[in-house]
Amino acid sequence: MTTVRRMRTAALCGAMPLALLVAGCGGSGGDAKPSEAAPAASQPAPAPASSSAAPKDPDAAQKRAVLAAYASMWGEQMKAYKVADATGTDLKRYAALTALSKLRLDLAQMKKSGTRGTGTLGHEPTVMELKTDGKLPTATLQDCIDLSQWKAVRTSGEPVPLPSNQPRRYLATAKAEQWPGGWMITDYTPNGARTC
C-alpha cells in the first residue's frame, strides 16, 4: 500500500453540492519528515537489509503514477473552483467519465449560485487496490479529505458557511484506469458519513 501523507494544495472551491464539497486536492504540503542524522563516526554503520526484509512492492511505480494523476486532477480542479469554470485548465487530461461529469455539474451549479472557492483543502490518498493483470489496469484510491481550512465565498466576497452537519474530515474513494496517455481518474465518491 502506498500512502501520500498530508498532500495539500491551495484549494479554491465554491459552495458545491455535498457530493463534491467533500472532495480533496493534490499537491505537496511540505510536511515531509526530516531524515535521521547519520551515525557518528565512532559507531558502526547499520548492516544492510537482509533478504528476509520485506520485499519491494513490484507495483510501487504504478501506485505512484496513480497518486500523481489523482493529485494533478485535484490541482486542476482547484484552479477551476477558484473561478467556477474549467476553461484554461488541464482537467480533461486527468479526469474522465463519471468524475469529469460530476465536476462539470458542480462547476455549473457554482456558476449559477455565484460562488467560488478559496482556502486550503487537504488530503491523504492511498492506493487501496491495483489490478494490472487485465487488458485495462485499474486502481481504487481512498482519501481522507480535510475541510478545516476550506472556504467558499460568493462572487461578492461574502463567505458561505459549510453546512453545520458537514464533517470537517471524511473519507472519499476514487477509481482510476490506465489509458494510453496515462492514468485517468474515472469516478470520485465522497462519503461524508465516514470520518477519518
Rank of each mutant, 00 (worst) to 15 (best):
V4S: 11
R5V: 12
R6P: 00
L12W: 05
L12M: 12
A19D: 15
A19F: 10
L20G: 00
C25T: 11
C25W: 11
C25S: 12
G27C: 07
G30M: 13
A32F: 07
S35W: 14
E36H: 13
A37P: 10
A40L: 15
A41G: 06
S42W: 10
Q43E: 14
Q43C: 10
Q43R: 10
Q43S: 13
P44R: 01
A47T: 04
A49W: 04
S51I: 10
S51K: 09
K56R: 14
P58V: 09
Q62G: 00
A65I: 10
V66K: 04
L67P: 02
A69E: 01
S72N: 14
W74E: 07
W74A: 06
W74F: 04
A80D: 01
A80G: 02
Y81I: 02
A84Q: 04
T87C: 00
G88H: 05
T89S: 06
T89I: 07
K92D: 15
Y94L: 08
A96T: 13
L100S: 07
S101A: 15
K102F: 06
L103T: 11
L105W: 11
L105Q: 13
G114Y: 07
G114D: 04
T115N: 02
R116K: 14
G117W: 02
G117M: 04
T118P: 00
G119C: 07
G122L: 04
H123A: 03
K131E: 08
K135M: 06
L136C: 00
P137Y: 04
P137M: 05
L141H: 08
Q142Y: 00
D143C: 02
Q149K: 12
Q149E: 13
W150P: 00
W150N: 11
K151E: 14
T155W: 08
S156L: 12
P159V: 13
P163R: 10
N165Q: 14
N165F: 12
Q166Y: 05
R168F: 07
R168D: 03
A172V: 14
T173F: 09
A174P: 03
K175T: 12
A176Q: 05
P180D: 03
I185M: 09
I185A: 01
D187M: 05
Y188V: 15
T189F: 00
T189G: 00
T189R: 07
P190W: 05
G192T: 02
